[in-house]
């Protein structure tokens, strides 16, 4: 039990915070119901994928600044490919865009390994490049998404044997999110590859000495990040019906949620669940602020301030976690 608390205590606490926020929401707006929850899930979708993308590389001891730009590029690619195309064509677009994310992510990793330029600089350069590429694909917001894709995030999933009222609390967007993340994460988490990703982030030297192929693992981590970012980009196109070439505020949000989700910025620690719950927490805070009739711009400030505070807190914890006796 004590170990469960030590290892999962943070996530458990976060979950409790989420429940608390739901209660607060319900108090502010007694009418808050399943429909609102569904729109929350839809709003969370792109953020959650961005966070998943960031989480993988942070666990591997790196950082990916190109997450938001990658999402913009994949989003506009999907939107422009589906523009005017048949519904069936989308069946090809989705795997194509996912593969694109995977390859571009791997490119990040390869550049880091080959040029030996630090991850932060490589992904910053890639941020410029991907942003530029997104603008080349679509100069202004536009494009379209296939109807069946749009439908895949709207409404709820009918689960046999479940009463309607409970069913209403299972929005498709949430199911889509859980399925997409689990398909990648569950097999990975306990595999040798997944362990290797944790290992290089936790202690690169020990990982090397344990026979982990460090360079290859790093490339895989960035490739997975690209894959998740592509999912995020797709979800943007799907939920808005268009693609926008200017990256949204997903970079800072992803870093903040990663930190809030209990994944140490130094690497090696945490899982995917924490950051995903953290995204819900951050979004729900926004919802509550909106419900309290606070100016949306003020909401943006508060949100930004929370994120910066969380990141500062995370960095502070990292300093504290340094070897005994070290002064700063």
């Amino acid at each position: 039990m004590s170990r469960f608390l030590r290892n999962q205590g943070w996530v458990a606490g976060l979950f409790a915070l989420l429940i608390f926020l739901f209660v607060v929401t319900k108090l502010i707006q007694p009418g808050y119901g399943s429909g609102d929850f569904g729109s929350l899930a839809r709003a969370v979708l792109p953020y959650a994928f961005a966070v998943a993308a960031q989480t993988v590389v942070v666990i591997a001891g790196g950082i990916d600044l190109s997450v938001a730009a990658m999402m913009a590029l994949t989003s506009v690619t999907a939107a422009s490919m589906m523009d005017g195309a048949s519904e069936e064509y989308a069946l090809f677009v989705v795997p194509f865009v996912l593969a694109m994310g995977l390859v571009l992510g791997a490119l990040n990793g390869v550049l880091i390994v080959v040029t030996r330029v630090p991850d932060i600089v490589v992904t910053l350069a890639m941020l410029f490049v991907l942003q530029g590429a997104a603008l080349l694909v679509l100069g202004a917001p536009g494009g379209a998404a296939a109807e069946w894709l749009k439908a895949s995030v709207i409404g709820t999933v009918p689960i046999p044997g479940l009463p309607d009222w409970a069913d209403a609390w299972v929005p498709k967007a949430l199911v889509l999110l859980v399925v997409c993340l689990c398909i990648v994460w569950i097999p990975l988490r306990r595999s040798r590859l997944g362990l290797s990703i944790y290992a290089i982030g936790s202690n690169e030297l020990a990982a090397f000495r344990s026979g982990v192929p460090v360079a290859r693992t790093r490339i895989v981590a960035y490739a997975l990040s690209g894959l998740f970012a592509a999912m995020g980009g797709l979800s943007l196109t799907i939920s808005t019906g268009i693609g926008a070439p200017i990256p949204g505020p997903y970079l800072l949000a992803s870093v903040a949620a990663v930190v809030l989700g209990g994944v140490a910025l130094g690497g090696g620690k945490g899982g995917l669940l924490g950051p995903i719950i953290a995204v819900f927490v951050l979004r729900l805070v926004r919802t509550d602020l909106t419900l309290l009739a606070i100016d949306p711009n003020v909401t943006a400030i508060i949100e930004g301030a929370i994120m910066v505070a969380v990141v500062m807190f995370g960095a502070f914890i990292t300093i504290r976690g340094r070897p005994v006796g070290a002064t700063s």
Partner: peptide
């Protein structure tokens, strides 16, 4: 050269010059 191309160029410049 469109704006997008320019950004790509800037990104590549930063990467190559740093390397």
């Amino acid at each position: 050269m469109p704006e997008g191309g320019r950004r790509i160029l800037f990104g590549l410049i930063v990467l190559f010059v740093t390397a």
